[in-house]
């Protein structure tokens, strides 16, 4: 059995070895050798049973002190080494945070459709219903019901795309406006009417900077007992402020449309130059935005309403045009281009 002196020496050596150990593993090995089952200390503890009872207590205390001292040294060294090893491990795991992240592509709704949803929301917020209808439409709903008789130039083949469907070559067409949705709605609903009808519309236009054969429009219609031009002005002022933000000015100029009387064009003060004249507004300070007016008595009568009892207003605005103006898109055709460089700009 090792003497107390031997054990004290063991303690001294173990503490020194622990202090010199370079890894947690080495510390553990020293600890096992010094304190494990077959260590001299364990042996000495086992031998205590046979020791002189008078010495046993003092001897036991001395062995415990030696063991505790070694354990403390081991624990201290292990903590230091573990922290160092953790630091090394994490350092080895370091990455360049400026590299690209790992993501699927960021997709996006089309800009025109974002504007579509936004303008619809502006109107549903004041109690409008969203109406829709077919894109391939009858000439009746697209023209006749809207005070555009068969001799009207808008119906010419040079302007309207007709579709080979059924026997009458001029009966079915790609709608040139979303107004047929209004005509259909009025046919099946009594006043009051508060609807907006966003949708695709078609004209026989070759593609250039400001024309495409397909574009998007939203029309609005309000018919009630006491709807006046003042309501039209107030509604459009609300719309413009919501869409372009506060502070703009609007003006209404007389214009002509077959389905409204009186008719007006609404212009608003250029949001880029605030009316002083710039490239966006062509130097005039005003941007021509939409056509509007009081619903023509013919249209009301065709819908089965009494034009002496109810009145209404209607307006139509190009959704693509709103997007072009607000986002300063120079050419309409970009909206119909699947170029990723274009699509990635939509967010």
């Amino acid at each position: 059995m090792a003497s107390l002196e031997d054990l004290t020496e063991l303690e001294t050596r173990a503490v020194a070895d622990v202090a010199a150990a370079a890894s947690v593993e080495a510390v553990d090995a020293i600890s096992t050798a010094a304190l494990g089952q077959s260590s001299p200390i364990a042996e000495a503890r086992r031998a205590l049973r046979d020791a002189d009872p008078d010495e046993r207590r003092a001897l036991g205390r001395a062995i415990s002190q030696i063991a505790t001292a070694i354990e403390a040294a081991v624990e201290e060294r292990r903590t230091v080494l573990a922290a160092a090893e953790r630091a090394l491990r994490l350092e080895a795991d370091r990455t360049d945070m400026t590299l690209p992240g790992r993501l699927p592509y960021r997709g996006a709704a089309h800009l025109v459709m974002q504007v579509w949803e936004e303008v619809v929301d502006i109107f549903t917020a004041i109690g409008y219903t969203v109406a829709s209808g077919p894109e391939v439409e009858t000439a009746y709903y697209n023209f006749d019901a809207l005070n555009t008789p068969p001799t009207h130039p808008a119906r010419l083949e040079s302007d309207t795309l007709y579709v080979e469907y059924g026997d009458d070559p001029e009966a079915v067409l790609l709608r040139t406006q979303t107004s047929p949705v209004q005509a259909r709605w009025m046919e099946s609903h009594d006043p009051p009417v508060y609807i907006v009808s966003p949708g695709r519309v078609y004209r026989r236009d070759a593609v250039d900077a400001t024309h495409t054969p397909v574009f998007h429009q939203m029309e609005g219609l309000a018919i009630d007992d006491n709807i006046t031009f003042a309501d039209l002005k107030g509604t459009l002022a609300y719309f413009i402020e919501k869409f372009f933000g506060p502070g703009g000015r609007q003006r209404f100029l007389p214009n002509f449309f077959p389905f409204t009387e009186p008719s007006a064009e609404m212009q608003f003060s250029c949001h880029v130059c605030d009316g002083s004249g710039c490239r966006t507004c062509g130097g005039t300070g005003w941007i021509e935005l939409l056509g509007c007016g009081m619903v023509d008595p013919f249209v009301l009568e065709t819908a089965g309403y009494d034009p002496t009892q109810v009145s209404g207003f209607a307006f139509g605005v190009g959704i693509d045009r709103l997007a072009m103006i607000r986002y300063e898109v120079p050419e309409l055709r970009y909206f119909f281009d699947a170029d990723m460089r274009v699509l990635e700009q939509y967010r």
């Binding site: 619809v120 109107f123 549903t124 004041i126 109690g127 409008y128 219903t129 969203v130 009051p192 508060y194 609807i195 309000a222 009630d224 709807i227 006046t228 031009f229 003042a230 309501d231 002005k233 107030g234 509604t235 002022a237 609300y238 003006r251 209404f252 100029l253 007389p254 009387e261 009186p262 008719s263 007006a264 009081m294």
Partner: peptide, 25 residues
Amino acid sequence: VEEIARLHGYNEFPSRLPIGTGGGL
């Protein structure tokens, strides 16, 4: 009425915001 409006000036008319009967999507 449009003729009267033209001479009176479209921009002279008052402005009022009517609220619809509700509907949404």
